[in-house]
Write a protein that binds this DNA or RNA. Structure first.
Lengths: 131, 131
DNA sequence: CTTGACCTTCCAGCAACTGGAAGGCGCATA
DNA sequence: TATGCGCCTTCCAGTTGCTGGAAGGTCAAG
């Protein structure tokens, strides 16, 4: 299975797959022509990575999850731990973004948005003083 | 006003301020000793940038906003436009993160999180097949 | 035998900083 | 006057997770 096929199968771009090899997330074999030769196991790993990345796990988290996945004597508590930490990061990020959204949407509704220079958005950004 | 003072005043780290000079967001004067010498106007600009960044505007958006801010004949519609686009990006990002959160929190609650290897989180990441 | 779609490597760049090294400047204190 | 400390300077490298592009090798079809 060469890179194009495994790319189609996993949904990951070839570039990304090469990058994942670069950082040792996968270690495909090589054919005599120098082409990467992915086993089903490799393909499966890449699908795993794609799914984990789509849930927002960092590459380092993915590395951990992958090694837990391949460790038959893992404790599910370790997996849960990684996931819970990630969940917290997501929650914090959502809160941050929500705060931005609230502020910004208020400002946007206050701005009449015509050809006059007067603008509450800029006023807010500029703080109390004027220039 | 040298960089330390303007840093304290704006809340931006000196490194960031130097970076902003590097990319031409501010152009502080220089003293005879080579030190940057920030005017009140510079300090004000930096505070503006800090506020805009804290609302999640990209550097390029900040550049645009700053130039609108300094353009007395601007149309508030242009400012509103930038803000609305940014608001949309934020909304999309929140939706993405919410989707992750929903999936992840479901998985996390399903995982017993003990010393047994059995784990719904890994099962999900692995997809339908097993290895 | 050539064309075109693959594949390879390597280098550069994105965003927005941040850390660290190596060295200059300014002021207080011994 | 020396020296020590904290500030300032520049420059280079690293972060995260890819992505684009150049230059070239390989393979199957016509």
């Amino acid at each position: 299975m060469n890179i194009g096929e495994v790319s189609a199968a996993s949904g990951l771009p070839p570039k990304t797959i090469r990058y994942y090899e670069d950082i040792d997330l996968v270690r495909p074999a090589r054919g005599t022509n120098g082409y990467r030769d992915f086993s089903d196991r490799d393909a499966h790993k890449l699908a795993f990575l794609g799914r984990a990345r789509s849930l927002g796990f960092s590459i380092e988290d993915c590395r951990t999850l992958l090694s837990l996945y391949e460790d038959r004597s893992r404790a599910s508590a370790d997996v849960k731990d990684v996931a819970e930490h990630h969940l917290e990061r997501i929650a914090r990020k959502i809160e941050e973004l929500e705060a931005m959204r609230v502020t910004l949407s208020t400002l946007v509704t206050q701005c009449h948005g015509d050809d006059r220079p007067d603008c509450p958005i800029l006023d807010d950004l500029a703080g109390s003083e004027q220039t």
